[in-house]
Design a protein around this nucleic acid. Structure first.
Length: 878
RNA sequence: GGAGGCAUAGCUCAGUUGGGAGAGCGCUCGCCUCACACGCGAGAGGUCACUGGUUCAAGUCCAGUUGUCUCCACCA
């Protein structure tokens, strides 16, 4: 009898993640399950996590990333691979520096107030605080990362890797220093790379101005959005084919205020149809003009100070901000009669992605990496198929970026980061070296100064897959675990980071840093807007964990999502995943309650249709889930397990097992346990905590599910006939339940059921399934017969495949309604018959479709015809 | 200007080589059925954006149209 069995262990009625998760995680840590063993002989499977920036706490995007990686790692670990996941954090040079400066501003301090050393001291304190907080948060996500290998981009080893990278590039001639037009952020007072510039549309004015042509009283008109830069103009350009200006090319005009004479030149860059057809050329403050200037050998003038004010080149405008200077200059031009008109214009303005301040192109001497040669093998790696990018469509971004790559400006006028390993001597010599040189190789001077600038933060991120394993040293870890297997990232950093890891990995290690680059989407808020701190629409993963538990959050981020697609965050989804945790918990509780102390799991039991149906189903599930995970389709894999556990295991298997368990049938228990364990194993990567807790409660052969063997598909466990038998039982049960619901027959009212079938095989199926049929359809008695002569008059009838079910409920029968119901069924079957017939009559179908499909269609036709005739017969009786 | 995504039930989204439209939430009806009301059972609800093409067969493949979101580039 149920309930008579003493419980081995009490289980609460509902699952409480909070009492379980921390305890289990601590246990995992203590047992060292996350640690990968170098040189174990097992095939390595390596992932380096995208290191979160130490700028802030974990957000939903990190939680998402973290879930994906942990699913893969746990899956492969269970499959027997030596699975290593390396965690870490990124110093995020500029992003962190901006935040520290803001924090200091609260105290009324500036960088200069405390100096470089003082600032770095603060930065390291920042790292101590926020870096460790991120680690705590990653652990909270249930991540099975190897914490012994925790790395930070500014660790000694990783910094050594950065220096090595720079020096090697320098040795190959890929590093150069030069004055080029850079993106200058006046707020952060540093250059930034092209990738860090966001273009945003802003309302502005297009001003029509004019310069007087020297020696004449004529003027040449041009349009500009940035009148203040006329002070840096060194030419006016027109299109060579523009006849209006043909006579002016080669002449000279006058820049007011600067009192400079500049040439009128002809260049294809100018669009004769735009504006007046003439353009002022400012090589010192515009990327296009810089290019024109190179072609025509024009002087480059810089009119900006580092803080964004105008410099001494601008005479009386010196010290004004760009905005103030613009207003003054317009007014002054008007006074000189050089202002013509203005129009409203919507145009895009470059802003810094970190501080949102306007980026000014200006001349600066910076360090650059020549990209041409580095990009080639990275392109080749993809084209040859060695590097896989999934989903494939993201390869376009990768290819586009590498094909159109420009030299990489790597120097930053910041303090928090890796200082460039270059030393200046008063003689002018610059020495690039791994360690500080004792004296200048040129003049021998011992007075050398290291470059003040630091490197772009991505310079160190680019090395992450191998610097974390000890490169440039030949460490055992590097030998064993490199190259890594998978790299995962959001599409928004594919070009920042993914591309750079590939080319630097190939250059430095001679190998692709990873085989598969998987790209995921972004987490959007419930309105479909990207979650961001500035919009304040972010949802804190930890808050969700404290409400619903880690497993619920993890599953909700994965299940039912398409790879690479952005998706909206919905709290209701976490709720339903939380409910699923509870479902698993209660399934386990049920099994526990029904498992006697002396149950022998190793004995051989006589299995029934229901047992084999369940085993067969789970066997197929193992195959599907494995394949889906191997192709990185995590969303579909998760939903498959979810559906199996809820719909098949809980709603059918457990329900069918109940009468057998009451009768003391050990085979039923054996099957439930066995299949449940496999289902838990398949689910474990997605929901590590609840699966572990339940797994440990139910058995003692294995101490952790984490190291349990991943279920493997086996042909021997395919039971087609039994699956067919159980679907017939399910069809009958559903038919009875449906009638009962329609007639409002409460479960408490037990009924008699007559199942009439002229097929002996079918009768045997129902006879074998009698106990399930009885329980699941709330029947008192079930009679299975070859003829209907024993069926009482006035019974409700429902036709199913190969049988008719009669339920004698004379008090509920309304002949008219029954007629209507049966007629509706008749119409449905008739249309099915017609559909099958027309399909089979189509020669194209019978000739070209797969033979098994044609055969299946013919079988269905027979079935429908059979059912139709039975329905017709029932109707005639009414 | 270049490229890409998306358009399927009231909402949010799945839909794996082309072969009878699915889930969660919401809604309706009935159930505290001895694992679970964070639950159980039964339902309602869809011209798979539009047009054309390929095919015996299209939500699925191809072309175009419309709407929508995004990325890259440019914007005197």
């Amino acid at each position: 009898m149920l309930g008579m069995i003493p419980l081995k262990k009490e289980m609460e009625k509902s699952y409480n993640p909070h009492v379980v998760e921390d305890r289990i995680y601590a246990d995992w840590l203590e047992k060292g399950y996350f640690r990968a063993i170098t040189g174990s002989g097992r095939e390595p499977y390596t992932i380096a996590i995208p290191p979160p920036n130490i700028t802030s706490q974990l957000h939903m995007g990190h939680a998402f990333d973290c879930s994906i990686l942990d699913i893969l790692i746990r899956f492969k670990r269970m499959q027997g691979r030596e699975a290593l996941c390396i965690p870490g954090t990124d110093h995020a040079s500029i992003a962190t520096e901006v935040m520290i400066i803001k924090a200091m501003a609260q105290e009324g301090l500036t960088k200069e107030d405390i100096g470089r050393e003082g600032f770095l001291e603060r930065a390291w304190k920042w790292y101590d605080k926020y870096g460790s907080r991120i680690v705590t948060q990653l652990k909270k996500m249930g991540s099975s990362f190897d914490w012994d290998k925790l790395r930070f981009t500014m660790d000694d080893g990783l910094s050594k890797a950065v220096t090595e990278f720079f020096v090697r590039l320098h040795e190959k001639g890929y590093i150069y220093r030069g004055e080029k037009l850079c993106n200058w952020c006046s707020y952060c007072q540093t250059t930034i790379s092209d990738a860090e510039v966001d273009h945003t549309d802003r309302e502005a004015h297009l001003y029509y101005l004019q310069y007087q042509i020297k020696g004449t009283d004529k003027f040449i008109q041009f349009a500009t959005t940035r009148p203040e830069t006329i002070l840096a103009d060194t030419a006016v350009a027109v299109n060579p084919c523009d006849e209006r200006y043909a006579g002016l090319v080669g002449k000279t005009c006058l820049v007011p205020f600067a009192n400079r004479e500049i040439k009128i030149i002809a260049d294809d860059y100018v669009d004769a149809k735009y504006g007046s057809g003439a353009v002022k050329i400012t090589p010192g403050h515009d990327h296009n003009d810089f290019a024109v200037g190179e072609r025509h050998n024009l002087e480059r003038i810089n009119i900006l100070n580092d803080d964004g004010t105008l410099n001494e080149q601008t005479g009386c405008y010196e010290g004004l901000t760009v905005k103030a200077a613009r207003e003054r200059i317009l007014k002054d031009l008007e006074a000189l009669g050089l202002y013509v008109k203005s129009e409203k214009l919507n145009h895009s303005v470059g802003t810094h992605d970190r501080c949102k301040d306007v980026v000014e192109p200006r001349l600066k001497t910076q360090w650059f990496v020549r990209m041409e040669e580095l990009a080639k093998p990275a392109l080749e790696a993809f084209k040859s198929g060695e590097l896989r990018i999934q989903p494939e469509r993201f390869a376009k971004i990768y290819l586009h970026w590498l094909t159109n790559i420009r030299d990489w400006c790597v120097s930053r006028q910041l303090w928090w980061g890796h200082r460039i390993p270059a030393w200046y001597c008063a003689c002018g010599e610059i020495t690039v070296a791994r360690t500080a040189p004792e004296n200048c190789p040129m003049c021998g001077s011992v007075s050398l100064n290291q470059e003040e600038d630091i490197l772009d933060t991505w310079f160190s991120s680019a090395l992450w897959p191998f610097s974390t394993l000890g490169w440039p040293d030949k460490t055992p870890d590097f030998d064993y675990f490199y190259p890594t297997t998978v790299m995962s990232m959001g599409w928004e950093i594919l070009f920042f980071w993914g591309v750079r890891m590939v080319f630097s990995g190939i250059e430095l290690t001679g190998a692709l840093p990873f085989k598969d680059m998987i790209i995921h989407g972004m987490v959007l808020d419930q309105n479909g807007v990207k979650m961001s701190k500035s919009l304040g629409n972010g949802i804190d993963p930890l808050e969700m964990i404290s409400k619903y538990g880690t497993d619920a959050l993890r599953l909700s981020l994965i299940t039912g999502n398409t790879p690479g697609a952005d998706f909206r965050f919905r709290e209701e989804k976490i709720t339903s995943c939380r409910n699923f945790c509870n479902k698993i918990w209660n399934a386990a509780r049920f099994i526990l309650m029904n498992t006697p102390e002396d149950f022998d799991a190793k004995a051989a039991y006589e299995l029934t249709d229901a047992d084999k149906w369940l085993i067969s189903h789970c066997n197929r599930l193992s195959r599907d889930v494995t394949n889906l995970l191997d192709s990185y389709d995590l969303g579909l894999a998760a939903s498959k397990v979810y559906d199996f556990i809820w719909d098949e295991f809980c709603d059918w298997a457990i329900e069918m097992a109940k009468p057998r368990l009451i009768a003391g049938d050990k085979a039923a228990l054996w099957t439930l346990r066995r299949v449940f364990f496999d289902a838990l194993r398949l689910l474990h990567p997605f929901m590590p905590f609840v699966t572990e807790e339940v797994f440990q409660s139910l058995q003692s052969d294995e101490e952790t599910i984490m190291r349990s063997a991943w279920p493997v598909y086996n042909d021997e466990n395919n039971h087609t006939e039994e699956e067919h038998a159980i679907s017939a039982v399910k069809e009958a049960v559903k038919a009875v339940r449906s009638i009962r619901a329609e007639k409002d027959v409460p479960p408490s009212r037990k009924v008699q059921i007559f199942i009439v079938s002229d097929s002996r095989e079918q009768r045997e199926i129902f006879t074998r399934g009698l106990s399930y049929l009885k329980t699941l359809s709330s029947a008192q008695e079930i009679f299975i017969d070859g003829t209907k002569c024993n069926v009482p008059e006035n019974a409700l009838s429902v036709v199913i495949t190969n049988a008719v079910i009669y339920i004698p409920l004379s008090d509920l029968i309304d002949a008219e309604k029954e007629l209507a119901r049966l007629n509706k069924e008749k119409v449905r079957l008739e249309s099915e018959v017609t559909r099958c017939e027309s399909r089979l009559a189509n020669k194209g179908f019978t000739d070209k479709a797969k033979p098994e499909l044609v055969a299946a269609e013919a079988a269905k036709l027979d079935e429908y015809k059979n059912m139709l005739s039975k329905v017709t017969e029932e109707i005639s009786k009414l």
